[in-house]
Design a binder for these strands. Structure first.
Lengths: 343, 343
DNA sequence: TTGTATGCGTTATCAT
DNA sequence: ATGATAACGCATACAA
């Protein structure tokens, strides 16, 4: 059996309350007593029992993280950002991936009662109605990636502006026939990026042609598999809604003997770490992925601290276009589409 | 305030013990009572309070995961494997990355008391002595990636066999002057892969030349930066101790105008998801990364279930060589170096 | 088959 | 400044 607060109290010749006061710096303690208690605690290697403390404190110092998946560098970066910020602020992260089923989300949210202080949720496939229905009312929640149709803390990327900047860049390179490889359109972010693509076209006076819009699913495999279809559209450039698909597409084009960017120009989205290592290096819209995670943690902690007086915020992070080789422009240019942050 | 077991008991007109019995399927309950209780619980949306339950049960259903880092696809895959297995077995994952400092490990291990049932620890940079010193004595631990110099559950990859198979393959391609780009040699896995390289050389009667051994740090950046140095060694092939570095090196070679595999053949290690998407596609030693994670979870659960009667196991997972383009051989071949599993 | 009461390890509320 | 002691919400031994 591990050493408890009672053991420390006995060893120091004081009551448990005093030990608690010393360890938490709560209430007044005579300096000499404090020393004695601290010494005893150190000597016995005492560590407070988390569950017991949580029970009375109503605080677990733990943040629940629910993601749709854990596969690939995007989530890796996201979790990394959250982990750094959480550690800095003295929080633990209870991470869980693979939540496609709304019911499953509800279940896991339920079982997290008494285990977490708040929740960071990324559920891009959930419709607003489902979201509203499945979101717990009695626990603080921060949504990542999608805006809620009701007041709720949110951290997301300016997908529309990012996509628009990417496509505008391609248009400025002289491209007229631009295809787009979108994410699954059940996904809000995928729809926003598609919207940015259309917006850029319209602004340039280029007509939006549905046959140039191909729907993928954000995986490398889908980028590879849809390569043939895209090629059949005979575009001179394609905006790929995320880097994973762009990497898959790049591989297909290589095997098909299509030269990028000469025969087909490409721009991706996200700027995952791997993007600079593809060949040709991927021109892409840089999302601050790890910042998305760290901001979510910070926002959640604020909500927790402010309690019921907290008014939800919608944080929109700006993107910037990183010009590398796949778009056919000079390397090293960075184009910022401007930023929006709403409080 | 959330609904507690008392509320359910009152609503169902029974005692709290009966509610507990129904919800946990412990002890006998009349069918009709069971129905009434279940109905009341459902209606009130009752969920047991995790901390309270943990306090009495001595079980948190949570596994602590301590990793040296969270950057890159390797950790992403590792965590994914753990997450899947943990979910299937009804466990939560408390994940924490970035633990370079041994003292920090000790601290975080301490603060996890009462929060986790066991620990999965990956600390490749820790020397055996430090490991022994900092490992908690009163909590179940599974080590990933490195064998401990004392009895301890372990899941690791057969690095020596994997590296040997890779280098032997290169030798069979006719290469005589083979360089190696190792990981940081403070890292046990890095040393094992280097050993496999040397072993293959010796077996082929090729003398081991220290000047052909270049030490990297397992990052893409280091692969890129050490490219010049490796080129100056004028090898005809290089065994790169992990895929991340191989990808960095590939990029350097491309920029330097060196053709892979014609002018320089390359073999990596790990087979991260990205490896098949590089250009040329990376020949590499496939580590079952996500299985590394899932096995760790399974082993930990076994240790937990068996209690003090548990005898530690050392699980060594086999690798296989995946032949793609970067080594200059025909694509699609798979060479298994044989497997070892010690119980 | 069921209810009452005790304890898990801590913090918080009272006395003193 | 300090020590008893009552919660916190649950599972469980024991009584009924």
């Amino acid at each position: 059996m591990a050493v408890t607060i009672r053991d420390v109290a006995r060893a120091a010749g004081v009551g448990v309350a005093t030990v608690s006061r010393v360890l938490n710096n709560s209430g007044p303690v005579k300096e000499e007593t404090r020393r004695r208690v601290a010494e005893a605690a150190r000597r016995l290697g005492y560590v407070p029992h988390g569950a017991a403390r949580s029970l009375i404190t109503r605080r677990t110092q733990t943040l629940g993280v629910l993601l749709p998946d854990l596969y690939g560098e995007f989530y890796s970066e996201l979790v990394r950002g959250m982990d750094q910020e959480a550690r800095r602020r003295g929080y633990y992260l209870l991470v869980s991936g693979m939540h496609a089923d709304p019911k499953e989300i509800r279940t896991i949210v339920g079982t997290m009662r008494g285990r977490v202080d708040g929740l960071i949720l990324m559920a891009p496939h959930l419709s607003p109605e489902l979201l509203r229905e499945h979101l717990p009312r009695d626990v603080a929640v921060v949504l990542i990636g999608a805006r809620a149709p009701f007041p709720c803390d949110t951290v997301r990327i300016d997908n529309v502006a990012g996509a628009r900047a990417a496509v505008t860049h391609l248009i400025r390179q002289g491209h007229q026939r631009l295809a787009v490889l979108t994410g699954p359109l059940s996904n809000q972010e995928a729809r926003e990026r598609l919207e940015g693509y259309r917006l850029a076209l319209q602004e340039a006076g280029i007509s939006v042609r549905p046959e140039l819009e191909v729907e993928g699913d954000f995986t490398e495999a889908s980028g590879y598999e849809l390569g043939r279809r895209i090629l059949s559209l005979a575009p001179s450039a394609v905006f790929v809604a995320n880097d994973a698909m762009a990497i898959g597409l790049l591989r297909f084009l290589h095997e098909a003997g299509v030269h990028v960017p000469d025969q087909l120009a490409l721009v991706g989205f996200d700027d995952i770490p791997m993007a600079r290592y593809t060949r040709p290096a991927l021109t892409t819209v840089q999302s601050p992925i790890s910042e998305l995670g760290s901001r979510a943690v910070r926002l959640l902690e604020e909500a927790l601290a402010e309690g019921s007086g907290h008014v939800p915020r919608d944080i929109v992070l700006p993107t910037r276009l990183v010009v590398r080789e796949s778009c056919g422009a000079a390397e090293g240019r960075v184009i910022s589409p401007g930023s929006t942050i709403n409080h």
